[in-house]
């Protein structure tokens, strides 16, 4: 928008960069899980290589946010926006790392089709993916309610984690030959669970940016007083 001030443009640019990072992270998760279920080493390699782009965007957000704070000394909502952008970009970068981590393990999981637990992993990943997708939508729309809803979904993911963990452990006991692959899958499951945790972290920051309140304080007395 030509009429907006330099500051508004910079905030817009920050938000745009975050959305771009988020889009890349979403695709990275999807491709990592696809490469795992199809044992597609080429796709896995693409995910690993693609992470550099997310890192580069994070650095760009960093530089721009610091510059905005230094030169424009933003206040109130604007300051919240910049701080949230700074923190969210760090978390989205971590989400990308976990996707890369999953992709890196694809080559080490050999007897993939024999794994009954593997039918559960895509279902679990779909929940984590949905959380990331929705939290980015919540960020785009500044929707605090959707953010809360994403936080509430984390428990579901933890249930899945428990379920798959038990499944894999009993699988290891019954089929010692597949222990190394099953152990890799444990790490994959852990990464998916961490992606959900990070989506929750983003959700809490979206809540903060939208309302000015700390998510963890929202039910406490005095929790309805704005921090900034």
């Amino acid at each position: 928008m030509a009429s907006s001030s330099g500051f508004t443009q910079e905030i817009g640019q920050l938000r745009g960069l975050i959305a771009e990072m988020g889009g890349l992270a979403e695709v990275a998760i999807r491709d990592a899980i696809d490469s795992l279920t199809r044992h597609d080493l080429v796709l896995a390699q693409t995910v690993v290589a693609g992470d550099a782009r997310i890192d580069a965007l994070e650095a760009e957000v960093d530089r721009l946010a610091v510059r905005v704070i230094a030169l424009r000394a933003p206040m109130a909502d604007d300051l919240r926006d910049v701080i949230a952008a700074l923190k969210i970009s760090g978390v989205v970068e971590r989400i990308g790392d976990y996707a890369k981590n999953i992709a890196k393990r694809v080559g080490k999981i050999e007897t993939i089709n024999k794994f009954q637990p593997l039918t559960l992993i895509p279902a679990m990943a779909a929940i984590a993916q949905g959380m990331v997708h929705d939290v980015l939508n919540a960020y785009a729309a500044r929707d605090a309610d959707l953010a809360i809803e994403v936080v509430n979904r984390d428990e579901k993911l933890d249930n899945f984690y428990e379920s798959i963990f038990r499944n894999l452990v009993s699988h290891m006991m019954e089929n010692p030959a597949t222990i190394s692959s099953a152990a890799e899958l444990l790490f994959v499951t852990r990464s998916i669970e961490r992606i959900g945790d990070h989506a929750t972290n983003v959700a809490e920051m979206v809540y903060f940016a939208a309302t000015g309140l700390y998510y963890s304080d929202r039910d406490l007395p005095g929790g309805d007083e704005k921090v900034i």
Binding site: M1, Q13, R15, A19, G22, L136, A140, A141
Partner: peptide, 20 residues
């Protein structure tokens, strides 16, 4: 995509890398 997209950076509206 949400009513908020008008006036927003296009990446906020569509963040898929291929779309961008």
């Amino acid at each position: 995509l949400g009513a908020h997209i008008v006036g927003d950076d296009v990446r906020i509206a569509l963040r898929d890398p291929k779309a961008i």
